[in-house]
Amino acid sequence: MARIIVITSGKGGVGKTTSSAAIGIGLASKGHKVVLIDFDIGLRNLDLIMGCERRVVYDFVNVINGEATLNQALIKDKRISSLSILPASQTRDKDALTKENVGKVLEELGKTFEYIICDSPAGIEAGAMMALYYADEAIVTTNPEVSSVRDSDRILGMLSSRSRRAELGLEPIKEHLLLTRYSPKRVAEGEMLSVEDVVDILAIPLLGVIPESPAVLKASNAGEPVILDTESDAGKAYQDVIERLLGETVEFRFLQLEQKSILSRLFGG
């Protein structure tokens, strides 16, 4: 049975879809069979970030309604064959999703894939609840910013009370903190919450810190998930996240201000 990971946050625009795409590519690159599901019905983005928006024929809602099979709807990634994407519907209502029919789709996917990554929409309404309901693990994406931290705390409360594991009294969802858009310079200046501040408030294990990076915007627009940009700091940070997800201990990079040597300052770079 597959491992179901939900990428959630509460707050919008913090980097859930960016992270889902990066983690999907990362896990699949390690040889695992991974499927990415976009749960944001009506505001689908995952296909854009993955660069497969021109190949969407059938979507999640079509599969639920029996209008298409999973095989017809799943899009194989052109870069890594063990990665597939199940896009969301752009035109339908999210009321089409119910716990039962979502559960059935996940069960079917679990027969072929090792990891099912659910890209959650923002908020705490039905869409987000549906994405987290069946999760075994949760990656709570947070910006080092007060409203994002508050909303992440709220979603953590929901994970521990409204998920299937909570309802059935099973082992609780494994929670991870993914801190995105981190700027060590602004932390040093006292403008931004530090890693320690956020971890102190949310009290869940830190999975990774992704630095604020121009590479992310570049990646979105090109449809090439940032983890493939191996030169960029964000790309490298996501590589570290994959290692940690798979159980390796990796030191946290990009937390300190880079001290540029006099030579590099003189000659740039």
Binding site: D153, L156, G157, S160
Partner: peptide
């Protein structure tokens, strides 16, 4: 036992 989260 455990955190009391926002909204709880």
């Amino acid at each position: 036992r455990g955190q009391v989260r926002s909204g709880q």
